[in-house]
């Protein structure tokens, strides 16, 4: 079979194996972006500060986007209630703290509550409709969105609540650049939780079974994996990630209110799609890229004022989708007729 080799393809062939995978438009673009950020940060203190703040915000988007992707991979459904579930669990932390727990005690207790919450939502609301139609499941999550929002407002009220800050107000100065402890803490916690989850999926038997159940449910059943149970556990972990995102988003906004996660959910949608919906790594990278990008654009492009942040994020998303309809990291799926 004769194929016409394009020039980039020929270039790629002559490279050593380990480099070959990297010489593709997407990794190259990302590498270029990283170089740009590093050089920019070295040249301007202001730029460095904005980049770090963007990174912190981006990991929050990334965490929630990863939660969406986990569920999408398993059930091919976008969970519209993901943000509201995260918001509700943040209120749980608020309640625990007001009952006298320290911030970090409440933090870990909340993660446990979130896991149970996710499992219960899957078993009670999602499992019964799962085999009917995708649209039915989506509408159920939309209903849950409204329901959870209503329940939280009913229980805690729509007024602003204040939580103790997990990180101090300290600002570190490194070579003239000011790094807020809060940004660094957010970054650390989000990255750690994503890494822990990755390790769970990558190295444990449970993680392997969950991946098998999500990818090939029929085959997984044949080797004895209890697929329904794995899906419920998957929702549990997604809710835990959401809770981390919520708990980290709260200090960035200084107040807790029922609409806490609504804009973040939208950015997480954008991040997940940017990364390709099927790709967990893509979701995280997409979130971080979006966070940094928006922060820098907000700082340096006068036209993009705060009202235009969301439309602008989605304009970027649309452009990416038109160029790569399966996202940056997605593999185009060949559909059988």
């Amino acid at each position: 079979m004769a194929t016409v080799e394009t020039r980039p393809a020929r270039l790629r062939r002559d490279l050593p194996q380990w480099l070959r995978a990297l010489v593709r438009p997407v990794p190259l673009g990302l590498a270029a972006a990283c170089v740009f950020l590093v050089v920019g940060s070295l040249l301007s203190n202001d730029f460095a500060q904005q980049t770090v703040a963007g990174l912190a915000q981006g990991t929050i988007f990334g965490s929630l986007a990863l939660a969406l992707v986990l569920i999408y991979r398993a059930t091919e459904v976008i969970n519209f209630a993901q943000g509201e579930m995260a918001m509700a669990t943040t209120y749980v932390a608020y309640q625990l703290i007001s009952w006298g727990l320290s911030y970090w005690e409440a933090f870990f207790a909340t993660l446990v509550v979130a896991f149970v919450f996710g499992v219960v939502v899957q078993v009670v609301f999602i499992r019964p409709v799962q085999h009917t139609s995708v649209i039915a499941v989506v509408i159920v999550t939309v209903g849950l969105f409204i329901l959870i929002d209503g329940l939280v407002t009913w229980k805690w009220g729509a007024d602003l609540k204040f939580m103790p800050a997990p990180f101090g107000k300290t600002v570190y100065h490194v070579g003239g650049v000011a790094f807020a402890q809060q940004d660094l803490g957010t970054l650390l916690v989000s990255v750690l939780s994503v890494l822990l989850l990755w390790a769970l999926f990558r190295f444990t038997k449970l993680g392997l079974a969950m991946r098998a159940a999500a990818l090939r449910p029929a085959s997984a059943r044949l080797v004895g994996v209890r697929v329904d149970r794995m899906l419920a556990i998957g929702w549990g972990f997604a809710a835990v990630l959401g809770a981390v995102a919520g708990l980290m988003a709260e200090p960035a906004q200084y107040v807790l209110q029922p609409s806490l996660m609504q804009p973040i959910l939208l950015y997480a949608f954008a991040a997940a799609v940017l990364g390709g919906l099927e790709s967990p790594a893509g979701a995280v990278v997409g979130g971080i890229a979006l966070g940094v990008f928006l922060n820098l654009v907000g700082q340096y492009v006068g036209f993009v004022t705060s009202e235009l942040r969301l439309p602008f994020a989605f304009a970027v998303l649309l452009v990416v989708l038109l160029v790569k309809p399966a996202g940056l990291f997605g593999r185009a799926r060949v559909r059988r007729v």
Binding site: S133, L147, I148, G150, W154
Partner: peptide, 25 residues
């Protein structure tokens, strides 16, 4: 049942969910 002004979202959300559980088509 829910009383307050925000109860309406609870009822509406619950009914949306229930309708889809009972009538998925």
């Amino acid at each position: 049942l829910v009383g307050s002004a925000h109860g309406q979202d609870v009822v509406f959300g619950l009914i949306v969910v229930l309708v889809m559980l009972l009538l998925p088509q």
